[in-house]
Nucleic acid binder design. Structure first.
Length: 586
DNA sequence: GATTTCACGTA
DNA sequence: CGTACGTGAAATCC
């Protein structure tokens, strides 16, 4: 394993430059902590960073991409490689915390729960939670990083503020070094489930998670291209025309409601947005349900016309409230790009998250996601990612053999002596714990045919039931919630743990893939515009479409080999060139 | 005003 | 007793 793309072997943190940005200023230090770029206003810093990127191609070390890289990305600077202290902290410590104080505390083996709390920076220069002390001190007497370390100095002494950035960058470098030492020493906090943290894999994950953090900043700044004309038509169809004022909005809403209420004379005053009232309403027409959820109502479609009307209303109401005019105005910029906040890693198993509806855009609206003129979207879906990941992380040779097929459920079915759909249900049941289907007999055969893969899942489940943390293939610690739990709750924790080692590992491979595409797409002008768990959307000039398709495939091979450490498990991507996201679903 | 519940979209 | 996420409206808690 050689880490992120472009790395020379053995030069993990070599060629490091530490950078910090705050209050419109920034500094750059070399790996010894010596000042390379003294405190400078942002505009000047941007030019220096651009030059350093070109001449040294460093690995940039920063506390968090969101604060440090964002202004650089906004200025159009491309940064190839980084070490994101916050993201590496998430990987090593588990959980969602990625702030400097937590990372500092963890590498200094301090209890993160006892950290001083940040005070409001605009009230007093020094909050009551930070003991009065040397205002220049970066840490509290207990050894914690002062949460107001930079902001307070700036407020107390504006002239001294920029110089304080040097200390701040030096602290980031210090923590990054400590993290790297811990990574390469491969500590094993919680070796539950038989999992140990392999130093080389952990290092590779640290680099690809860092790359993902930077990619998230680029996704936020760049946004997702949208066809305004198309999205306007789609919203109009679902939510009605854009209201000119509040009165018109109320009228449109009332007309939408009326389509349902017309079916139930005498109950026109029912609030359709109140589940209890809807339940009452249904009871009066002889439809008795425990809840008013879509799949519950769907079973009563034939009972009364109001049910169908209600289901139609729900769909329209969904678009109107969540993806309507307000959403369009709020999240789609004048440049026709849909923007939302991105997180490289959630608090659980490690998937990327996105706000502004980027990760749950209804299929109806997807035709509106379209390439800008002269461009195309290269759409790439990983096929059957989770069972393939299972084969890799469990090191199951027999199951790995099945991944050679484009459709791995076919050879698995043959091996089990069952039809392909039965094999699929059995594999999914094994990974997710589904029991509603009748996978019983096939599950037993699965245990006999692929004992290594199944044992991996059983171990994770058992660890979860016990409350022990699990560790993903790439080395992410996934803590379990604690406390006195009922048997049912312990089982739920077991299912969570079993899911976490698969979903989390898939997320790691995905991010390694995305980072590789990002690096390789640079000469093509290719821009990753959406990451959706197992799907990538790449926006690229039309003349480079074929090259981008090849890049996506090649990057998957590279990332998979690097991440799995073997070429015996095959990963496949369905890749198509489209103008609109809705086209050519794989 | 903040948190919980219900509902539903995506993978 | 699949898992996870983000969002909005209403109910509920303080």
């Amino acid at each position: 394993m050689t880490g992120a793309p472009g790395d020379a072997p053995g030069s993990v943190l070599g060629g490091v430059l530490a950078i910090a940005v705050a209050q419109g200023h920034g500094v750059v230090l070399d790996e010894t902590g010596a000042v390379v770029v003294p405190p400078a206003p942002l505009a000047a810093l941007v030019e220096q960073v651009r030059a350093l990127e070109a001449s040294r191609r460093p690995r940039w070390v920063w506390w968090r991409a969101r604060e440090t890289a964002r202004p650089l990305v906004e200025a159009g600077v491309h940064l190839a490689r980084c070490w994101d202290v916050g993201e590496v902290h998430r990987l090593l410590a588990g959980g969602a915390a990625a702030d400097p104080g937590s990372a500092w505390a963890w590498t200094h083996r301090l209890d993160p729960g006892a950290q001083p709390v940040a005070s409001e920076p605009d009230l007093f220069a020094f909050g009551t939670d930070v003991p009065a002390q040397d205002p220049e001190a970066l840490t509290t007497p207990e050894g914690y990083l002062r949460p107001d370390a930079v902001a307070s100095t700036w407020q107390a002494a504006p002239q001294a503020g920029p110089h304080r950035l040097v200390d701040w960058a030096r602290a980031a470098l210090h923590v990054a070094r400590a993290q790297q030492a811990l990574v390469t020493e491969a500590p094993q906090p919680g070796s539950a489930g038989g999992s140990r943290r392999d130093p080389r894999r952990l290092l590779g994950t640290a680099l690809s998670e860092s790359a993902a953090a930077l990619l998230c900043v680029e996704l936020e700044v760049g946004g997702l291209p949208v066809d305004r004309q198309a999205v306007t038509e789609l919203i109009t169809a679902a939510a009605g025309p854009r209201p000119r004022d509040e009165a018109e909005a109320i009228g449109i809403r009332a007309r939408r409601d009326q389509a349902v209420l017309a079916h139930v004379p005498g109950r026109e005053r029912t609030d359709l947005r109140n589940p209890l009232q809807v339940k009452d309403l249904l009871a009066t027409v002889g439809v008795h349900v425990d809840n008013t959820r879509k799949w519950t109502l769907a079973a009563h479609r034939g009972s009364h016309p109001v049910v169908e009307a209600l289901l139609t209303w729900r769909k329209a109401e969904r678009i109107a409230t969540t993806y309507g005019w307000h959403w369009l105005d709020q999240h789609v910029g004048p440049d026709d790009r849909l923007r939302g906040e991105w997180t490289a890693c959630d608090g659980g198993a490690g998937r990327m998250t996105a706000a502004s509806g980027l990760h749950n855009l209804p299929a109806e609206l997807r035709p509106a996601v379209a390439a800008a003129s002269g461009h195309v979207l290269v759409r790439a879906d990983l096929g059957q990612i989770e069972p393939r990941v299972l084969a890799a992380v469990a090191r199951d040779a027999a199951f790995a053999e099945a991944t050679q097929a484009d459709d791995l459920y076919s050879p698995v079915g043959t091996e089990l002596g069952v039809e392909r759909p039965v094999a699929k249900v059995a594999v999914l049941a094994a990974m997710y714990g589904q029991t509603s289907g009748s996978a019983g007999e096939a599950l037993k055969r699965l245990d006999r045919a692929y004992p290594t893969a199944m044992a991996y899942l059983h171990r994770a489940y058992d660890a979860g039931v016990r409350g022990d943390p699990v560790v993903t293939w790439g080395g992410r610690l996934v803590p379990m919630w604690q406390g006195e739990l009922s048997e049912g709750q312990r089982s739920a924790r077991g299912r969570f743990a079993r899911n976490a080692v698969i979903q989390g590992a898939a997320a790691e491979l995905f991010k390694a893939w995305a980072a590789t595409v990002r690096a390789g797409g640079r000469p093509l002008g290719a821009e990753i515009v959406l990451c959706l768990h197992d799907e990538l959307l790449v926006h690229v000039p039309a003349e480079h479409a074929d090259a981008a398709v090849a890049l996506v495939h090649r990057s998957l091979d590279e990332a998979a080999r690097r991440w799995t450490g073997t070429d015996r498990v095959r990963f496949v991507a369905d890749v198509s060139v489209v103008r609109r996201w809705s086209e050519a679903k794989g």
